[in-house]
Write a protein that binds this DNA or RNA. Structure first.
Lengths: 107, 107
DNA sequence: ACTTACGGTTAGTCATGACTTACGGAAGCG
DNA sequence: CGCTTCCGTAAGTCATGACTAACCGTAAGT
């Protein structure tokens, strides 16, 4: 259910801003954090989450880490949304996977 | 920034389940809550949030409230996602709107 | 080697929001 | 009319997670 994680991860406004700042191209952490209302470590944490969700890639370049968007990370979310437009095939496929696990009780 | 609210609202797994149960068609609250691991009031609260976000519609039928999906509520989110696929026009349009409001500091 | 820029990690704080229980109003049924 | 069903609202509890400050390692420049 990676479209679920994509939703969760992109729900936070600050994290979304971080993600959007990569739309125009790869950037080091410094450049992303510049001008943001939160501290640089906060941005680092958000990047970590984005990376774990497969929405972002990291590559090292000397002492800096260059982050960039991973479009494939958005693909499943896109398909999920599309499935609400009555595409019967996708709807069936997704519904089959999404039988609700009653796990929340076991907390 | 309604794609933002859509993301926030759909991020919660329980609320997403509620939303997905409407994919196959309009349903009263009872039917939605049946078999879910949370109480009926919880479902009501989720429906309220979904409705405020424009993702769901409500119509009264006697004593029951019938909820159904509002596809238009997903349209902007869909467009936002698409804008990451290099559609220059959409990307420009969306970026123009999304200059980060430094509101978080004022909490 | 010393220093400086870069950025990830940890610990601890605090606000947000998802949930339950209890309640209340509104419509159908006997 | 009671009685029941349907469902929204209120109050209060508790877990989650976003953030800062402090710290550490690493690369590059002098």
């Amino acid at each position: 259910m990676t479209y679920g994680s994509a939703l969760v991860v992109l729900a936070d406004p600050t994290r979304r801003e971080v993600f959007e700042r990569l739309r125009t191209g790869p950037r080091p952490v410094n450049a992303i954090a510049a001008g943001m209302p939160v501290s640089r470590p906060a941005v680092s944490q958000h990047l970590k989450v984005l990376k774990e969700a497969g929405l972002v890639e990291e590559r090292s370049e000397g002492v800096r880490r260059i982050y960039s968007v991973r479009r494939e990370g958005l693909a499943e979310l896109r398909a999920w949304i599309d499935s609400f437009w009555g595409d019967a095939l996708d709807a069936f496929k997704l519904e089959a996977e999404s039988s609700y696990q009653a796990k929340k009780r076991q907390r």
